[in-house]
Write a protein that binds this DNA or RNA. Structure first.
Lengths: 176, 176
DNA sequence: ATGTGCATGTAACTGGTTACATGATTCG
DNA sequence: CGAATCATGTAACCAGTTACATGCACAT
């Protein structure tokens, strides 16, 4: 098995590490910054929450409200924090998708300074490698190959911006 | 049903619209520019190819080579081109993942000029909307909330770069 | 009245991954 | 001599989506 697995679980766990939340809150939060990553659906959030609870990584605080379904506020446990740390600290591995990087960014608070820096550095080298690959490949310049041209220039633009951000951030992080 | 479905199939079909390819080639190609999108595995590519063939959207040219497994070169058919066009032309819809946008970028050659512009424009407004949302949300500046701060600044940086690229590209496209 | 947001959940489905099997060839 | 690349395929598994059910509150 490679790297993925249990994705949503850990993402949720990471959010709960910041504040207690309900399943609905999780969705709202993720939807708000769900631009680069797609927002998980309720059909995966609610079951994930229950699984986390059964594993003792979170606890529920059920706020029964007479009428409508009880509001369930989930909080992370100590065991949860430990599990999260283990997961977040381990490298996403080369070829990891953008999503993996973003998840660790969101979860930055649960990482050690060193761990965070390591992740950013790894990402940096990945992006740099890709940039080199793009630059290296013969760009057909003309010809019908519009798709290739657009993709190239798009990737170049994004890669440049991301590298700049990584450098800036890495700098701030170390000099502070 | 929303928008996804048959993803890999159409992505592959789009690649075949440019040159005939084998399943292995598809993988190689996608892996090369598989930085923002994750590369599909053989376990999905080969079955997809067969499905496309059975639907008459591609044809196979089997190059039997005495010893090792025959190399299969797939080519798109007319029906395939039509199907691809229909798929690519239809909007990915709001809240579409980055992947959907990128797929259409890669497949630019199969789109009409107008269709391409429409996609870019739509993407532009989506990114812009998100940018506004980020800017609008109170950034906690200080406090432990490192994750939120980093995510914000990352998203801001990428959004800005993408908007710039979109504007530039949209410009080039119209003035030519 | 109708729809949107709040709030939770379940069952069916399915797209795609993981892991396996096979085997020649080239590179270090 | 072992590792990587070429090259194809299958079967088991699973994470996540889609679609549904329920029901109040509030705005239009």
């Amino acid at each position: 098995m490679a790297h993925s697995s249990l994705d949503v679980r850990y993402l949720i766990l990471g959010l709960l590490a910041q504040h207690p939340m309900s399943g609905y809150d999780v969705r709202r939060f993720l939807k708000a910054r769900g631009w680069l990553i797609s927002t998980p659906s309720f059909g995966s959030i609610y079951p994930a929450l229950r699984a986390l609870e059964q594993d003792g990584l979170v606890t529920v605080d059920v706020v029964s409200r007479s009428d409508r379904p009880p509001r369930k506020s989930y909080s992370i446990t100590e065991a949860g924090r430990r599990a999260l740390q283990v997961w977040a600290e381990r490298s996403a591995g080369p070829g990891a998708p953008l999503k993996a990087f973003l998840m660790r960014l969101i979860l930055a608070d649960s990482l050690s300074q060193a761990g965070l820096v390591a992740h950013l550095t790894e990402r940096r080298s990945q992006v740099a490698a890709h940039q080199a690959a793009i630059e290296g490949s013969r760009s057909p310049a003309e010809g019908g190959d519009l798709g290739r041209r657009l993709t190239h220039s798009y990737e170049r633009a994004i890669a440049a911006a991301e590298l700049a951000w990584l450098d800036r951030t890495l700098n701030e992080l170390s000099s502070q």
